[in-house]
Amino acid sequence: MKKGFKKNIGFLHLWLGLGSGLIVFIAALTGSILVFEKEIDKAINPEYYNVTTIGTTKKTIDYCTDILQKQYSIKKITRIYTYNDPARTMQILGKDADKKAQFFSIDPYTGKVLATTPQESRFFVVVLSIHRQLLMGDFGEIITGSSCLIFAFMLISGIVLWWPKKMKNLKQRLTVKWSASFKRVNWDFHSTFGFYSFFILLLISLTGLSFAFSWFQDGVYFLADGTTKKPSAKVENPTKTDPKLNHTAFYQSIYNTADSIFPYKGNIQIRMPIDTINSILVLKEYSEKTIPNQSSAAYFDKYTAKEIEARPYESFSNGDKIRRLNYPVHTGSIYGLPTKIIAFLVSLFALTLPITGLLIWLGKKKKQKSKS
């Protein structure tokens, strides 16, 4: 490898690292927390997830939504989460008169509200907002997305800088000399563990780019499907005006139909459209699949509750299936606890990279001053 090329790579690695270090630190810290989001949230807020007594018959979904509308002044239901596990609560998101999102945990056997809180004040909602947007909205997402892109380059350039000039020195590059000076241990820790965690951190950063930038997601679809034209996740509602039908089991009929269309065990979520054009989306996840986030989709008329279209997971394009893998790969949940632990550990290591990198730079700067 030519000396000039490696020197230029080192220059970019240094200054891009210094420029993005704080954002990488924040993203790695919040990311490591989010790896065990469900486990931590269940421990802190068990009433969000579990009923106290498992009953024999569940109330209809509409019975529960009526309680929210009458007793909690909820004007619009936005999402409904139902679960196969008989011990799980039903979770509903709705907007109040001030258009603020409220989270509700409901006992499906009694219809009793076990917990309620503003959605935006939930701990992990705040952590996710920091992770993705630095609490700065779209502008913050540009910053974190750009830092993620820089981090991917830093990983690749780090491998270039780590690569030994002679293969006989490879063994030295693969170990940390713990008995050496702090300066040497710091350098070894930064570069050696950077090599070992390279592949996983690169996967995390690339899946992060898919969340941050539509152009990156278009590239994934092009590689997988040969086109950047993604199948629309939305279906236009066929009924254009509300006929004001007297529904007594609107949500329950949608749930029952979706459950029968896809005859396998799975959690079901109902997503109401956020605009005035599109229909209701229902997702049913394969709960018995090894890899999570494999869900079939069905669309329903938001006024009549009639089925419009069904899309089994097996009919999804390769690009869609890869996109569904994005979240479990990014969070480490793809193969359960073992991959979560790996994702957690490499995220903690990523948190140290800006610090150890800064110390390496300060050490070199101090050495240059002493020479002059």
Rank of each mutant, 00 (worst) to 15 (best):
T78G: 14
R79A: 15
R79V: 14
R79D: 09
I80L: 14
I80W: 14
T82Q: 06
Y83W: 15
Y83C: 12
N84I: 14
D85E: 14
P86M: 09
P86T: 09
P86A: 12
P86D: 01
P86Y: 07
A87T: 15
A87F: 06
A87M: 11
R88A: 11
T89Q: 08
T89F: 15
M90F: 15
Q91V: 15
L93K: 10
L93E: 09
L93H: 12
G94C: 06
D96P: 15
D98N: 11
K99E: 03
K99H: 08
K100P: 11
Q102C: 14
Q102E: 01
F103Y: 15
F104Y: 14
F104N: 07
S105D: 12
D107Y: 00
D107K: 00
D107V: 03
D107R: 01
D107P: 15
D107Q: 03
Y109L: 09
Y109D: 04
Y109K: 03
T110Q: 01
T110A: 09
K112L: 07
K112A: 03
K112S: 05
K112P: 13
V113K: 06
L114F: 13
T116L: 10
T116P: 07
P118C: 08
P118A: 04
P118H: 04
P118T: 05
P118E: 00
S121T: 13
R122D: 10
F123W: 09
F123M: 13
F123A: 13
F124A: 08
F124D: 09
V126Y: 08
V126C: 13
V126T: 07
L128S: 10
L128D: 08
H131W: 13
H131L: 15
H131A: 14
H131R: 08
H131I: 14
R132H: 12
R132G: 12
M136I: 07
G137C: 07
G137N: 05
D138N: 10
D138R: 11
E141V: 10
I142W: 12
I143A: 12
I143Q: 06
T144A: 01
T144W: 01
C148Y: 03
L149Q: 00
L149I: 00
L149E: 00
I150V: 10
I150T: 01
A152F: 04
M154V: 02
I156N: 01
S157C: 03
S157K: 00
S157D: 06
I159V: 09
I159S: 05
V160W: 09
V160Q: 02
V160H: 04
L161F: 07
L161S: 02
W162S: 09
W163N: 08
P164I: 06
P164F: 08
P164S: 04
K165F: 13
K165Q: 05
K166Y: 12
K166E: 05
K166T: 12
M167Y: 11
K168L: 11
N169Y: 10
L170N: 01
L170W: 04
L170I: 13
